[in-house]
């Protein structure tokens, strides 16, 4: 089973990289856009076959290492 973890900065946390990307997009002539935020995605292949067990395991990984709860949120996606 594969897990994809999407890690994003919490709303309200300054994202200067997102702002720079937004500036570059506008510089290229794209208009009608705002609030560009940059996050990251982590992929993990798990030996688990049980979805609940896999989710619990990845949840623990997020809490212990993958995300910093002071500034980040995370969302877990499991793929068969």
């Amino acid at each position: 089973m594969k897990a994809k973890i999407h890690i994003t900065l919490k709303p309200g946390v300054l994202d200067p990289q997102g702002k720079a990307i937004e500036g570059a997009l506008k510089g290229l002539g794209f208009d009608g856009l705002s609030n560009v935020r940059q996050g990251k995605e982590i992929e993990i292949t798990l030996a688990e076959t049980d979805e609940a067990a896999a989710r619990a395991k990845v949840e623990e990984m997020c809490k212990k290492l993958l995300a910093n709860p002071v500034m980040e949120n995370y969302a877990i996606e499991l793929l068969a």
Partner: peptide, 9 residues
């Protein structure tokens, strides 16, 4: 707290 990317990049 945490240390984020410098505001000016």
């Amino acid at each position: 707290g945490a240390l984020l990317r410098n505001a000016g990049l």
